[in-house]
Design a protein around this nucleic acid. Structure first.
Lengths: 225, 225
DNA sequence: GCGAAACCGTGACAAATGTCACTGCTCTAC
DNA sequence: GTAGAGCAGTGACATTTGTCACGGTTTCGC
C-alpha cells in the first residue's frame, strides 16, 4: 500500500522533470517456480504491471542460476520448494555470481528458513498467502533497495527460541527422516547403534517429542533440518 | 492445442451467421484456492482471455459452495488442497445444489483422488504442472460439455491396482497418521489395542511396509485414505 | 445351510525402541 | 588448569511394536 503511493509520487516528480520520462525504468524480473501453471499465472499477473518485465523463467534452482547469469535481471523471484536446488540454494548461487536482488516466495513459512534466507542475503520473503496485489509493490520496494519481510513470519521467527539441539543431534534427526530403523541411521553416519539411540533420545527430550518421528517433524517445522 | 483450434473454428462460423455475434458468450468462472497469491495470479491469467470472466473467488471449500449458489457460474475451478472442505468435498456440495461444471486443480496428483473426483461427477482434473497456456483451453473444453482428465494422472490411475485393504484397516491407518501409540488409536476407534495391532500388521503386510508410518504413507500416496 | 470373508478379540513371543547410568575423549572459556 | 559442553560408546532395563496362532461373531453369496 505505502509502497504503491511512494511509486506514484515518484512518477509524478519525474513528469515534472521531463515529459519523455513518462515511463519509468522497467524492472527486469526472473521467475522460478516448479509448477508451470503457477509460474505462468505469476507471469500474467506481473505482466499487467507496466514497469515490470519478465525476462527469464525457470522450473528449478539450477537453471534459474544459469538464466540469472545470462540475463542479469534486477530481481529474482524464487519459489522456496523446488526440485534439486531449492530457493535458498539457488539464491546463494545467484548472489555469488550476479549483481541482483532475490525475493523468496514460499508456501509453508517456517521460521528457521527465514533465518537461512537472511544469511543468504535475500532481500524479500513473502508467503503465498500474500494478496496478489501486493506482490508488485514488494518487487518495486526491493528494486528500490528496500527489504521486505512478511510481518507474520518475522514475528514468529523472532519469538521462536534458538535451536537447542547439538550438531550431532541434528544430523541424526536429518537421517532419521529417510531411514528406517536405528541400524540404518547408524550405518549412514558411521556410528554405533547405541550412540544413535542416545542422540535421538536427547533430541526427543529437548523437543519433548514422544517418538523420533515426532522429533524430526518438529525440527523440520522449525526449519532446523 | 486441438481445443484452441476448435474454438477458433467455432468463432469463425459465428461471424458468418451474424456480425453482432462477434464476441462469444463469455464463460462465467468461480475460482477457489486458499493461497491468495496463486488465486490472484490465476485471475490475472484467465482475465487475459476475452471469453472468460471471473465472477467469484473463495479461499476455502465452504465459501466456494456458498458463492457458487449465489453467482451460478458456468465453471468452478477448485484447488484440491484447501482448509475445512477440500476440493472434492466442495465439488460434491456445489454439484448437489447448482447446475455447473467443476474442474479440480491439484499439486500432488494421487491416483485414488482421481477416482474420488470422478465419483463426485467432476468434469476436469488438471495438475499444477500443466502449462499455463493450456488452462484456458481446458476451461473452454469443459464449458463445451467435454471432459478433461490429465493424461499422466489417468494413466497412473488405470495402472494402479485396486485398494487391497479392508474398511477397518483403512480406518486404523487413517487414525494412525495423527495418533501416537497403538493405545490412542484403539481409544479413538473404541477397539482393543491388540485388535489395532492386528489390523496394522495385516495392512503392513498387504502394502509390504516395514512400519505403520510407512504403511500409512503409502496408503496416503495412493489416495486410499 | 455352509463356506468365505470381514470383523473383534486374546495371549504369547521376538525384535525394536527409548531411557538411564556411566566411561572416556577433545575442545573452549574463565 | 580445570570446569563445562559436546562427542562417542557400552551395558542394562522396561516398554512398545509387529507377528503369529487361535477362538469367536456377523454378513453375504451360492
Amino acid at each position: 500500500m505505502s509502497a504503491l503511493s511512494e511509486v506514484g509520487a515518484g512518477t509524478g516528480a519525474d513528469t515534472v522533470a521531463g515529459i519523455a520520462q513518462a515511463e519509468r525504468r522497467v524492472i527486469r524480473l526472473l521467475i522460478a517456480d516448479d509448477e508451470h501453471l503457477i509460474r505462468g499465472a505469476l507471469e500474467a499477473l506481473l505482466g499487467l504491471e507496466p514497469d515490470i518485465e519478465v525476462v527469464a523463467s525457470a522450473d528449478n534452482g539450477v537453471t534459474a542460476a544459469e538464466l540469472a547469469l545470462q540475463t542479469r535481471p534486477d530481481i529474482c523471484l524464487l519459489d522456496l520448494e523446488m526440485p534439486h536446488a531449492d530457493g535458498i540454494e539457488a539464491a546463494v548461487r545467484i548472489l555469488s555470481t550476479v549483481s541482483t536482488r532475490v525475493i523468496i516466495v514460499t508456501r509453508h513459512a517456517r521460521p528457521g528458513v527465514l533465518r537461512r534466507a537472511l544469511e543468504a542475503r535475500v532481500s524479500g520473503f513473502v508467503p503465498k498467502s500474500t494478496p496478489a496485489g501486493e506482490l508488485a509493490a514488494v518487487i518495486r520496494d526491493v528494486a528500490a533497495g528496500k527489504r521486505y519481510i512478511d510481518h507474520e513470519i518475522a514475528a514468529s521467527a523472532l519469538s521462536a527460541e534458538r535451536c537447542p539441539l547439538t550438531d550431532r543431534e541434528l544430523d541424526v534427526l536429518r537421517v532419521s527422516r529417510s531411514a528406517v530403523g536405528v541400524q540404518q541411521i547408524a550405518e549412514q553416519l558411521h556410528l554405533a547403534a547405541g550412540t544413535v539411540r542416545n542422540y535421538l533420545s536427547s533430541a526427543m527430550t529437548k523437543l519433548n517429542a514422544v517418538s523420533r518421528h515426532e522429533a524430526a517433524e518438529k525440527a523440520w517445522q522449525q526449519g532446523w533440518i
